[in-house]
Amino acid sequence: MINQSTTIMFILLGFSDYPELQVPLFLLFFTIYSITVVGNVGMIVIIRTNPKLHTPMYFFLGHLSFVDFCYSTIVTPKLLENLVVEDRTISIKGCISQFTIGVIFVVTEMVMLAVMAYDRFVAICYPFLYSVFMSPKFCALLVTIAYTWGTISSIMLTYSLLILSFCETKIINNFACEYSVILSASCSDKHFSEVILFIFANLSAFCTLIIILISYLFIFVTILKIHSASGRCKAFSTCASHLTAVSIFYGTILFLYCIPHSKNSWLVVKVGSVFYTVVIPMLNPIIYSLRNNDVKETFRKLKDLRIISQ
Results as ranks from 00 to 15, higher is better:
Glu86Thr: 09
Ile44Ser: 03
Phe29Glu: 06
Ser72Thr: 04
Val37Pro: 02
Glu81His: 15
Arg48Tyr: 04
Phe29Asn: 04
Pro56Gly: 08
Phe69Asp: 02
Glu86Leu: 07
Val45Tyr: 13
Val38Gln: 09
Ile90Glu: 15
Leu64Gly: 13
Thr31Ser: 04
Ser34Gln: 04
Ile90Pro: 09
Thr89Pro: 03
Ile44Gln: 08
Tyr58Ile: 06
Ile92Pro: 03
Thr73Ser: 15
Phe69Arg: 06
Leu28Gln: 12
Ser65Val: 04
His54Lys: 15
Arg88Asn: 14
Leu27Ser: 13
Asn40Gln: 11
Tyr58Val: 03
Phe30Tyr: 05
Thr73Trp: 02
Pro56Arg: 09
Leu27Gln: 10
Arg48Pro: 00
Cys70Phe: 01
Thr89Ser: 09
Tyr71Phe: 13
Lys52Ala: 09
Pro56Lys: 10
Asn82Gly: 04
Val84Ile: 14
Ile92Val: 12
Pro51Val: 08
Lys93Asp: 12
Ser72Gly: 15
Lys93Ser: 15
Leu61Thr: 02
Tyr58Cys: 01
Lys78Arg: 10
Leu61Tyr: 08
Pro51Met: 09
Leu27Val: 15
Leu64Asn: 12
Tyr71Trp: 14
Val45Met: 12
Thr89Ala: 01
His54Asp: 11
Tyr58Leu: 04
Glu81Gly: 06
Leu83Gly: 01
Gly62Val: 03
Leu53Asn: 08
Asn40Trp: 02
Ile74Phe: 09
Phe69Lys: 04
Val45Ala: 12
Ser34Lys: 05
Pro56Trp: 10
Val67Tyr: 10
Glu86Ser: 10
Ser97Thr: 00
Ile47Val: 14
Gly42Ala: 03
Leu28His: 07
Phe60Ile: 06
Arg88Val: 07
Arg48Trp: 01
Gly94Cys: 04
Arg88Thr: 10
Gly39Thr: 01
Val45Glu: 11
Ile35Trp: 13
Val38Pro: 05
Phe59Pro: 00
Phe30Ala: 15
Met57Thr: 10
Thr31Pro: 01
Ile32Trp: 02
Val37Ala: 12
Arg48Asp: 03
Thr73Ile: 01
Met43Pro: 00
Ser65Phe: 08
His54Met: 10
Gly94Leu: 00
Val84Gly: 00
Val37Met: 07
Phe30Trp: 06
Val45Lys: 15
Thr36Asp: 01
Phe66His: 09
Val38Tyr: 14
Ser97Gln: 02
Val67Trp: 04
Phe30Met: 12
Glu81Val: 11
Val38Asp: 12
Thr76His: 07
Leu27Glu: 11
Val45Asp: 10
Ile44Leu: 08
Lys78Ala: 00
Ile96Thr: 03
Pro51Lys: 10
Asp68Thr: 11
Asn40Gly: 14
Phe66Ile: 05
Ser34Glu: 03
Leu53Cys: 05
Tyr58Asn: 05
Pro77Ile: 00
Ser97Asn: 00
Val41Pro: 07
Val75Pro: 02
Ile46Arg: 15
Gly39Ala: 04
Tyr71Ile: 05
Lys52Asp: 07
Thr49Ala: 12
Tyr33Val: 01
Glu86Ile: 03
Phe69Gly: 06
Lys93Thr: 11
Gly62Glu: 11
